[in-house]
Write a protein that binds this DNA or RNA. Structure first.
Lengths: 145, 145
DNA sequence: GTAACTGCAAAGTTTTTGCATTTGG
DNA sequence: CCAAATGCAAAAACTTTGCAGTTAC
């Protein structure tokens, strides 16, 4: 998924392109595989379009969520939410370092395992979220804080 | 994991038992397999111990998190966090109805699949979170809102 | 007795909203 | 032109904290 494709999707859903929106989309596309907070997105977007504002970031994230183009998540430690573009061409999950927060994309997805293991007809399975937590090599080398 | 076991763990870590704490622990243990918000926990705890307070709930959840006895999570739709006792004897994940929020425990865990698929020595795998999203049978019957 | 715990009220964070103004198509 | 988008400031929602008083052990 690249920014141009995303723009097309938004336009075809009746949304207009503004510099702020384009900046936000570009930031998201340039950071696939990482988790960004709303504040991260704001700061990075401001580099491209300085007048970008928190409300605008949140409003655009909401639109993208509704179109199922971004995933929203939190990590256990705090209550900030993190966002990432859903890249259908390159579906992945993450491993997250519990010490420094660094993330890394993991290609393996256990969804098929779930499908075959859930004989449960009560739910129609639509989506899933998988996060792995660990300690990255750099943090392992460091003395424990 | 039952409330008595949990009390023992807390006591052996130097924590004292108060009626508020006991109420919170019991509520958590009685709701394994569900996700409770801090507010849910407060309201249910108040039935057992009416003077229970929000600060006390959050402070106890923090202690339980530090001892790795509860998991904290959020669902995509809103930014409220949800808590559940980690029941090592009965490890499970959840499927969550995106319409009504109802949850159901799922026994299958793909962790072993991950271990064998991650040849990645950069991370030491410590923990994981898996959530499935879908629409429950009741919501499927209802006319779309 | 004393360290741990709690209640309260206040502050901190993150997210959402109303409204007046601006802008893209 | 006008619906959509934005900026601002204020509010809402959720969580954390300081402090004085209380309680478990």
């Amino acid at each position: 998924m690249n920014a141009v494709q995303l723009e097309e999707i938004l336009k075809s859903n009746g949304y207009k392109m503004t510099n702020q929106r384009r900046a936000i989309i570009e930031v998201l596309c340039e950071n696939i595989g990482k988790f960004l907070s709303a504040e991260d997105i704001l700061n990075l977007s401001k580099i491209k379009c300085p007048q970008t504002n928190f409300s605008t970031v949140y409003r655009n994230l909401e639109i993208l969520e509704q179109l199922e183009l971004v995933h929203k998540t939190n990590m256990d430690a705090n209550s900030t939410c993190f966002y990432e573009i859903i890249d259908l061409d390159n579906h992945h999950h993450h491993i997250i370092c519990t010490q420094c927060g660094k993330t890394k994309a993991i290609d393996f997805c256990p969804l098929e395992m779930f499908k075959s293991n859930i004989e449960d007809e009560d739910f129609e399975l639509l989506d899933h979220k998988v996060e792995l937590y660990g300690i990255c090599s750099e943090c392992r080398k460091k003395p424990k804080k």
